[in-house]
């Protein structure tokens, strides 16, 4: 499979701050590639370099076979960009915004109306075609921005936090769309701080921390690489006392939240026996019991030291 995007030591410095630090990646054609990282890790800066919005300090990259330094216009012709901000013109209607995008990307005049019509249908925007962009809800705005990025039928699309700030239904709808793009062999380079989203959508994920790539692999392999041991999760009829927790910790690491308990299993039989015995001694019933593999979120927290809740709150505060 050919590479759609290749980064080779790509670096961006802002004075003494290195926002992107010698990042090297290969992304195959048709791949959905998730780019995960805490706020300020360098995800957006990386995209901005790849689409020509900012100039790298060092290193190189090719997109669709064209160098971002020497042939950036050819790169721009072949990619679509969905930025984090819904940056279309509030004063223009949905139709006029898409028409303007089609003109910017040299879509032939006789194809524009048909393509825009198709996009309105795909994104369920037909009844909003004459609505001013500024009057749309956040979710609808995102749909229009994605439609604008697809009007010239690019083979590669860069999406910077596409579902950020959206309600659940809109986010689900957009994720469905990303899956459909994958089925059409469109390469999707996606940054997100929703770990679950990266896990569900991405063929491979790169985690970037302070400008440096920490790991690049499939979500499954990343989960397995963090902890080999599975986890036993149990729900109890009441919260365990401290003594019970200490006893259980002899068998492995324990996390608990009220009446839910997680134990890192080293010996499944031994851990189960301990749990049931300690619970029954205290008159506590085990109401639910199952084993878990480490999640991508667990892997992310372990690799970056940042909890996803902290990341979400920081993002929301930045958006205010």
């Amino acid at each position: 499979m050919k590479d759609a995007i290749v980064l080779d030591g790509l670096t961006k410095d802002y004075g003494s701050l290195t926002a992107v630090d010698h990042v090297s990646l290969n992304i195959e054609e048709g791949e959905v590639f998730g780019f995960l990282g805490p706020n300020g890790a360098g995800k957006t800066t990386t995209i901005r370099m790849l689409v020509g919005l900012t100039t790298p300090s060092e290193g190189s990259a090719t997109v669709a076979g064209y160098d971002i330094g020497d042939d950036i216009v050819e790169v721009k012709r072949r990619v679509g960009v969905v930025p984090e901000a819904s940056n279309l013109y509030d004063e223009l209607s949905v139709w006029d915004n898409l028409l303007f995008s089609s003109r910017l990307y040299h879509v032939p005049k006789d194809e524009r109306a048909a393509r825009i019509g198709d996009l309105l249908e795909i994104f369920k925007l037909e009844d909003r075609r004459n609505t001013k962009f500024g009057r749309l809800s956040k979710g609808l705005k995102r749909r229009v921005v994605i439609a604008a990025a697809l009007v010239h039928q690019p083979r590669i699309i860069f999406m910077d936090e596409p579902t950020s700030g959206l309600d659940v239904l809109s986010a689900l709808s957009l994720r469905r769309l990303i899956r459909e793009l994958r089925l059409e062999d469109t390469t999707v380079f996606l940054t997100t701080h929703y770990i679950e989203e990266a896990d569900q959508l991405s063929d491979r994920v790169a985690i970037i921390v302070e400008g440096r790539i920490v790991i690049v692999d499939t979500p499954e392999n990343i989960k397995l690489s963090i902890r080999g041991a599975p986890i036993l999760e149990a729900r109890l009829s009441q919260a365990p006392d401290q003594l019970m927790i200490r006893e259980l910790e002899l068998g492995g690491r324990v996390e608990f939240n009220e009446n839910r308990i997680r134990i890192e299993i080293e010996n499944l039989t031994g851990t189960l026996e301990s749990l049931i015995m300690l619970a029954s001694q205290r008159g506590i019933q085990v109401t639910d019991l199952h084993t878990l593999q480490p999640s991508l979120e667990d892997a992310f927290v372990e690799l970056t030291g940042v909890s996803t809740e902290v990341m979400r709150v920081e993002k929301e505060n930045r958006g205010r």
Partner: peptide
């Protein structure tokens, strides 16, 4: 400010 100028800079136009 609205970041709409980025649309021009990421489009294949000089």
């Amino acid at each position: 400010r609205m970041q709409t100028f980025d649309r021009f800079l990421s489009a294949p136009v000089s």
